[in-house]
Design a protein around this nucleic acid. Structure first.
Lengths: 232, 232
DNA sequence: TTAATTTTATATGTAGGACATATTTTAATA
DNA sequence: TATTAAAATATGTCCTACATATAAAATTAA
């Protein structure tokens, strides 16, 4: 029975203007490359100071929605959906819950990615992965040093994202790395230690070479078991 | 042999200040709730005008890194990794490639999500899903109207994200909806038409009730076949 | 003394003007 | 005609002033 008090929406002018400009762009079907009205014109039409407009545009510029050149003015660009995330994806900034969500997200992505890998894998990719696995197997440090193991773990899985052929997915994973790294060190060392009977990187490469997307998916799920078993 | 001329990075002051402030927060291990130096103090220490500082802070405010109250000043908040994306996740703003990436991302998520569903499903969830499926089956409009079919499709899959227990994942899907909706209408109607022999929503619910995460994963993959088969 | 009220101080929010800077356009010159 | 110089213009940066909300201090009432 939460009888909430009405949250008075005292949205700042900047936020309102930001929304209005975005609406304006959507409604008028602005295409990439089109030029926007100048700051002063926007300010006048909106009835606010140029400062407010500039703050709003600064935000949109950060998101990649617009770009600006000195005398030319401002024009539409294709927004980068990850540019916002990129700035704050840092264990020192994120809360515990967000970190957990992101860690789970990575598990979900790697299991679900299988189909893309099989659609887009190239022979050269298999060669590259095998090279990583071989290097890992022959590195004596791997037995003793957790950091080394982690480095190989990351290198291997990062390449899988690259193989997915989905640039957004790939970039997303690369900015997930700090969080991933942090969470792995939080978990007990067991996580990075290959367990008897579980799926190794080598097994995954073999499945990628001669197996099916179906098999790979289950093998990856198996490979990630130590992480999944920590969830609740 | 593209002999590019070095692109002199004339990063705007705002961008530089934004980075410096973020670094400052990370290095000094600012915790959620801590208060920041005031705008004028920041401006003086950084050697820039208050305007520049305000634009930078406006960006950080948008990302949820900081919040500000009138006389209290500014303080750290837990950033919302999705707030940036939320604003620009719109078919009218995104480019074709980004849309494709996002659509694929959804497929990946739904297949990979299986494990989370089985870890966190509750009896009430199954009941709710069954209710959706029954309603869909008894709706005569479903046979003829594409929009109706799409609505049920979205309602069903949206609830799965909700079940995942991962708030970030859930919010992400909800802002994916416009893109999803758009892409589905681009695809031929066949996509939304249940094919003979393929996995239906009802089958998925049944698997969720009495099956395993393993089975559900493959059934979901099967259910999404029409979309996967369009990839290359 | 304590509680309620008013006042004051302060940091953010908004406005508007001024000049710097880069670059396109135009004009002037060789 | 080609080259060079000047002007025009939109963004980038700085400055000052004032509005506004509110925490903190001071005042008054009980």
């Amino acid at each position: 029975m939460s009888s909430k008090i009405k949250p008075i929406k005292s949205v700042s002018l900047v936020e309102q203007v930001e929304q209005r400009i975005l609406e304006f762009l959507k409604e008028n079907r602005f295409k990439s490359g089109d030029s926007l009205p100048g700051e002063i014109e926007l300010a006048e039409n909106l009835g606010v100071s140029r400062n407010i407009v500039r703050e709003s545009l600064s935000r949109l510029r950060m998101l990649g929605v617009v770009e600006s050149k000195k005398r030319k003015g401002m024009f539409i660009a294709e927004p980068d959906i990850l540019s916002g995330i990129e700035r704050i994806m840092d264990p020192d900034l994120l809360g515990e819950e967000a970190m957990q969500h992101i860690f789970e997200l990575r598990l979900v992505l790697e299991v679900g990615m299988s189909e893309l890998l099989f659609i887009r894998k190239k022979d050269s990719d298999i060669v590259k992965l095998q090279e990583i696995v071989d290097r890992e197997a022959n590195d004596p440090l791997c037995k003793t040093d957790l950091q080394t193991r982690l480095a190989y773990e990351i290198e291997f899985h990062s390449y899988l994202y690259k193989m997915s052929g989905n640039g957004t997915l790939n970039r997303f994973q690369s900015m997930l790395l700090p969080v991933f790294h942090f969470m792995m060190q939080q978990e007990s060392k067991a996580a990075a230690e290959p367990k008897r009977g579980s799926i190794s990187h080598n097994d995954l490469v073999e499945t990628l070479r001669n197996g099916t997307a179906y098999e790979f998916r289950e093998n990856m799920r198996n490979h990630l078991t130590p992480h999944f078993s920590k969830l609740s």
